[in-house]
Structures are given as structure tokens and as C-alpha cells.
Design a binder for these strands. Sequence first.
DNA 1: ATGATTTCCTGTAGGC
DNA 2: TGCCTACAGGAAATCA
Length: 272
Amino acid sequence: MPELPEVETVRLALERLALGLEIAEYICHRPDYLTHGRQYTGKLAGSRIESAIRRGKFLVLLLDGDFALMHHLGMSGRMLVTTASAEIEPHTHVQIRFRGVDAEIRQRDPRRFGFAAVFTRDELSRFPSWAELGPDPFSLNSRAFAAILHNRQAPVKNLLLNQRRIAGLGNIYVDEGLFRAGIHPLRPAGDLSPAQSALLLKCLKRVLRESIAAGGSTTNDFRRLDGRFGEFQHKHRVYRREGEPCPSCGAIIEKIILGGRGTHFCPSCQSI
DNA sequence: ATGATTTCCTGTAGGC
DNA sequence: TGCCTACAGGAAATCA
């Protein structure tokens, strides 16, 4: 469940570590994990990493030539920096080796809900799940956010998980944002008052910012680029805390299934 | 068109 | 101890 803060944590680390590095070799051990651009992998040697960008949960390394390397972490994906001679751990699907440095980037993903792809910049801009991505929460003001919720009958949690509506939120930060805003996950999105919707956006931005500052949440699989755990899981107030007392009011936190996902909330603080 | 449900995958945790 | 089952969920596909 790497979401916006986890992907941003990786992106920031890549920005410090990998900009300017010249690719020596791009290796994919599992053809079906590389969903696009297999015909390009042999042409990447000599290109340098120009920038590391993120939209929603998508991570892209832009090269100085025409190519863009996309990495999505899915559920159990990790981007890791290792020495070039480090043992290849199981479920390592992609290796990016560099010239002149004893380091390489690897993508591991046991459950394989993630993927890697190589695009030209033009292909990237037309790749549907990238091109049709909604805005990042940080780019929204309360008016634009209200427009996204307007007239939507779906439960607000489902809408916030829809990457075409708003990009980057997943199960953890939707539950945590709704709790902080005092809004029930089943509440129809379009029913929120302007004040509630503004508060929700503010709470979402705050929880995302705090998580980025903590290096993201490690609930199970997520690791930072250097292998360290994130720390924000210690600040979760409801996510996977069903049966525990609410940190605000002491009521017992409940868990329901919504859109096939565990959904955690305080029945007392979060009114429907 | 919207919204709800199903599917992919494997390591881990819990029950017996 | 070991076997078995349930569970975790991002996003695409499918259905009503």
C-alpha cells in the first residue's frame, strides 16, 4: 500500500541519489512485469537520469534522452538502492545499473500488483492511467476539491480512492483523513457541506505532509530507498486499530468493508 | 454515465 | 510442529 507519502519518500531519496547518473544497463527479470517498452530497454545505456517526478502513486524517472522510466509499487513493491554486487533478493524484477558508481536501483514486488514500464516522453503523456490521473491533493484549493465531490452519490471514501478523481490517496490516508475531519466513510461525497469539504481537504493535506516528513508508513512491506522503515504508522489513529479506543473520545474503533477494503473509523467522532 | 463487485498475487498471521 | 485458511489492497475489468 505505498500511497502518495511513500512514493514521495522514495522520490525524494532518488532525487538526492540518482540525478545525473548514467545508465549502464536496464534489466527486467520478468517480462510480464515490464508492461510497456520492452523494445526500448536495450537502448537506455548512456542515458542519464534528469529528474524524478511523481503524480499520484506513479514514480517516473525522466532521462536526458527521450525516455521515461515508470515504476508503480502496487501493494508490496519496493524501490531499493544496493551495491552492484549485492545478492539478488527474491522477487527482484527490475535492476537499473549505472556506470562508474557501485550502486544500482532495484524494484522488488512479491505480490506483483505493481509494474515497471519504459516510455518515450510522448508515449508517457498518452499513457491512460497517467494521462487521466486526477489532481494531486496538494494542488487543490477548497473550491476545486468541492467541485470534485459535487453531486457524487458514492461514499466519500470510495470517491477519494478513485485515482481519476484525485490522485495519490489509498486506504491508509483516506481512513486517517476522514477520521481527522470527523467525517464518516459512508457519507455520500456530494452531501458534505462546504465547511466539511474544506476541512477534509485540509486534514488530508496535513496527514499526507506529516507522513512524508516521517518517511511514510511501514505497515508491512514498504521500505525507504535505503531499506529503512517509515515511521508514520505510529501516528495512525484508526487505520488497523479496530477494537482499540479512539484517541479522541475513547469509543471503540470499528472496522467495516467498503469497496472491498478494510475501513476503520470512530463511530462516535465520525458522524454520517 | 455512475457506482458496486470481482480479479490479479503471495507472504504472513492465526486457528486447530 | 505443521497444515490450512483468511487476509492485506491498487487498479483494471466487468457488471448492473
